[in-house]
Computed example of a mutant assay.
Amino acid sequence: MSTAALFAALICASAQSATANDRADRDFFNDVAGKWSGPGEIVEGKMKGTRFRCELDGLPLEDGGTGFRLDGRCRTGMFSHPVTAVFIREGDTYRGQFLDGSEGEGLDVTDGVIEDGKAVIQLKRDKVTGALVANLLDAENFNITLLIKGGTRFVPVIGLSLKRETDALAVGAIK
Rank of each mutant, 00 (worst) to 15 (best):
R53T: 15
G34M: 06
L10G: 10
V128A: 14
T129W: 11
D126L: 12
D116M: 04
K48A: 11
I88K: 14
A9Q: 15
G34Y: 05
S161R: 07
A5H: 09
L137G: 11
G38C: 01
V113S: 09
V43Q: 00
T3E: 15
I11L: 13
I144M: 15
T145I: 12
D111W: 12
R26C: 10
I114P: 00
A170T: 15
I148S: 15
T166Q: 14
K149V: 12
A4Q: 13
V133A: 12
F79Y: 08
F29D: 04
C54H: 00
F79K: 14
R153P: 09
S102L: 02
V113Q: 03
N143M: 14
G91V: 07
G45R: 03
T76R: 09
S17Y: 03
T3F: 07
A15P: 01
G49Y: 05
E41F: 02
G40K: 01
I158V: 13
I144S: 14
A131W: 06
L59C: 07
N21S: 15
P60M: 03
I11V: 15
A33K: 14
L10Q: 12
D111I: 06
I158C: 08
S161K: 07
L136R: 14
S80I: 00
N135G: 09
D126Y: 12
K35L: 12
Q97Y: 11
G58H: 03
F52T: 03
G96R: 04
C54I: 05
W36G: 00
L70P: 01
L123T: 05
D116C: 04
N135V: 13
G91R: 01
F68L: 09
G67M: 00
A131C: 11
I174N: 08
L70G: 06
G172Y: 02
F29G: 00
G159F: 09
C54K: 03
E105M: 01
P156K: 14
V157E: 12
L107K: 04
G72R: 03
K175G: 15
T93G: 14
I158K: 03
G77Q: 00
G64V: 07
T3Q: 10
I158T: 09
L107H: 08
A15R: 13
G117I: 05
L6K: 13
A173K: 12
D116Q: 08
E103Y: 03
G106I: 00
L147Y: 04
K46C: 07
N143W: 07
G150L: 15
G104N: 07
S161M: 08
D63T: 02
A139F: 10
A33H: 13
A24D: 13
G58F: 01
T76C: 05
V133D: 11
A15I: 13
L146M: 15
S161Y: 02
A33P: 00
L147A: 12
E105G: 01
R125S: 08
E41Y: 02
K46V: 10
I148L: 15
D92W: 11
V113Y: 01
A139N: 14
A168N: 12
D27T: 08
Y94R: 05
A119N: 00
L146D: 11
K48E: 10
D25E: 04
V109W: 02
G64D: 06
Y94F: 13
C12S: 13
L10D: 11
Y94D: 01
A168P: 11
E44C: 09
T19Y: 12
G40L: 04
A139C: 09
T166N: 12
A33T: 14
M47T: 09
